[in-house]
């Protein structure tokens, strides 16, 4: 049973199917999915032809078939999974801390004027700053292990969470708050029953932004100092001009990005069945 059918849907309405197509296609029609698929396939064919006929020197470009073969080999030897595991751990730990920290800080600056006065300017400044730029410094401080990358993720992925949580909480309809207060709701009940659900779309959109930032942070962090991970693979491959290997890591990252973003979108739908 899909998650949606458990969420109190009116039983006399047809259930929407949840599956691969919905996950990636959203509300799009069959035709535009077709077009999307053809666009990707056409691009790959063109790439392959250019790689074979125009820039045949493999130092300059790897073709899709070479990359696919490389990915296959890396998977068979298990090497790919080791690197994915390292990067995945850095990403996962960093993202979870960013989400929790971001929601907590967003809530704090919305409800507490003093906290807002103290933290507000810092948050605005750091949100717009490309903090990946100080990744080398963080590697210096925290070493080349897991936690330096986790820290890079946190200083990049937390800010969209803070800003979106704040925007969402502030966007709560004052009429709804008033209505619920008339029914005797305590401040805590107002928060749980009105403000948080109202802010949820903003918070989940923030998660989607943070996922993107976290992936970039992991890779950049690894470029500057690491022993394993997809970013490490990229550095290593580029140093010896192993283009198929370099592209293999990039493609895996792109795929992971697509899947995670789709997952975040899926989460947005499942957590807000009233917003369809």
């Amino acid at each position: 049973m899909s998650a949606e059918t458990t969420m109190n849907q009116p039983t006399d309405r047809p259930q929407k199917q949840v599956g691969f197509r919905r996950l990636f296609g959203g509300a799009r029609t069959h035709r535009s999915q077709h077009t999307g698929f053809l666009s990707i396939a056409g691009g790959l064919v063109a790439w392959e032809l250019v790689g074979r006929l125009v820039i045949s020197n493999s130092l300059f470009l790897a073709t899709p078939t070479q990359i696919a073969a490389q990915i296959y080999n890396l998977m068979r030897s298990g090497e790919l999974f080791i690197h994915m595991g390292v990067s995945g751990a850095e990403f996962g730990i960093g993202l979870i801390i960013s989400i929790i920290l971001g929601i907590a800080l967003g809530f704090l600056i919305t409800t507490n004027k003093i906290a807002n006065a103290i933290l507000g300017p810092w948050i605005s400044a750091l949100y717009a700053t490309p903090t990946v730029a100080i990744a080398p410094l963080i590697i210096l401080w925290f070493g080349i292990g897991l936690w330096s990358k986790v820290f890079v993720v946190i200083i990049n992925a937390t800010f969209p969470m803070i800003i979106n949580t704040e925007a969402g909480l502030r966007a709560t309809d004052p009429k709804l708050i008033e209505a619920v207060r008339c029914f005797g709701a305590s401040p805590l009940q107002v928060f749980w029953n009105v403000m948080l659900p109202s802010a949820l779309p903003y918070i989940l959109a923030g998660v989607r932004l943070s996922v993107g930032r976290a992936i970039v942070s992991v890779v950049v962090g690894e470029l500057f100092g690491s022993r394993a991970g997809l970013g490490f693979m990229i550095t290593q491959a580029s140093e010896v001009f192993n283009m198929p290997r370099l592209f293999a890591a990039v493609v895996v990252l792109a795929l992971v990005g697509v899947i995670l973003t789709a997952g975040a979108r899926y989460l947005e739908r499942v957590l807000q069945p009233w917003n369809k």
Partner: peptide, 20 residues
């Protein structure tokens, strides 16, 4: 203070959209 001895009916936009 507010209390359950008073029931309120507001204009139509006061239902919580995330509650059935």
């Amino acid at each position: 203070a507010p209390g359950p001895d008073r029931g309120f009916v507001f204009q139509s936009d006061s239902l919580l959209p995330w509650r059935t």
